[in-house]
Amino acid sequence: MATPTLRAARADSASQALISDLVDALDRIIVGKRQQLRLAVACLLARGHLLIEDLPGVGKTTLAHALAKALGLSYQRVQFTSDLLPADVIGVSVFNRDTGRFEFHKGPLFAQLVLADEINRATPKAQSALLEAMEERQVTADGHTYSLPAPFFVVGTRNPAHQIGTFPLPESQLDRFLMQLELGYPSPDDERLLLANGERRAMVDELEPVLSVEALLRLQDLVPHVHLSEPILDYVQALLAHTRTCGDFVVGLSPRGGISLVRAAQAWALMEGHAGVHPEDVQAVFPSIVAHRLEAASGSSIESHVDLGTAILRSVALP
């Protein structure tokens, strides 16, 4: 492409080293999940929110907490239960007898990193309170609008839908999460390491911030400026078109899904130090972008043991 672009951005080597350090620090705590950790960081850089779907006890909470510590972010955890009310998340106005006025007590949502644990255990009402705040990055209570802090990063976890007592999240709300990751069981070696070192909590507590909030915000600002070439846009379009026309999925990817894919690929390219988005960058983030957005239709030709994203990547040629 001979088109000059002034918006091209590339992380300087210092920031790249910092990102690398961040992933290393997390890797020491969540052992053997480097790819997932990198995706989580990319998600954060792309100003997206992260959804982790997995069984309890594989380190979802630890990951969120470690991320907050390593970035020096304020951290709150909300355990979603079936009796959770929207006010429990957003905050509540309380009458102050001294001043004679209602005062808004900010809820746990006002942290920079919020772990929304087991969101599909809550009622749809509480779920939507969280998801709306994620989208708007502000909260309105009693006629006042309160901005949420920046950066604002929600890590939601959900149990596999077949577990008892879950309210499935509607597709439109799932779309608010940029990526969905699965952590999965550690490999035997890694598990042995985990068992030997014992409690992770102490390690998390000891974690020193690797990246300042200012540096993080600056990197987040760079992401949308990573160069997108025409062939890459063609490729993204081909992927979107395939999900819509191949007939393997109930519904294809939405344009919003496409924007998410581009943004995540830009964040990945930034982490890789690429001056533009490479096909590999798109491919790296693609499975986590589609994991919660696509549902295989009955009679689909995709084999069950291959994840949807990989199957699509295999069948769409690069332009």
Binding site: M1, T3, P4, H227, P231, H274, H278
Partner: peptide, 15 residues
């Protein structure tokens, strides 16, 4: 090739 095709190449040096 990757540089010429996917990255900004204002004066066509990579190409």
């Amino acid at each position: 090739y990757v540089e010429a095709r996917y990255e900004p190449d204002p004066n066509g040096a990579a190409l």
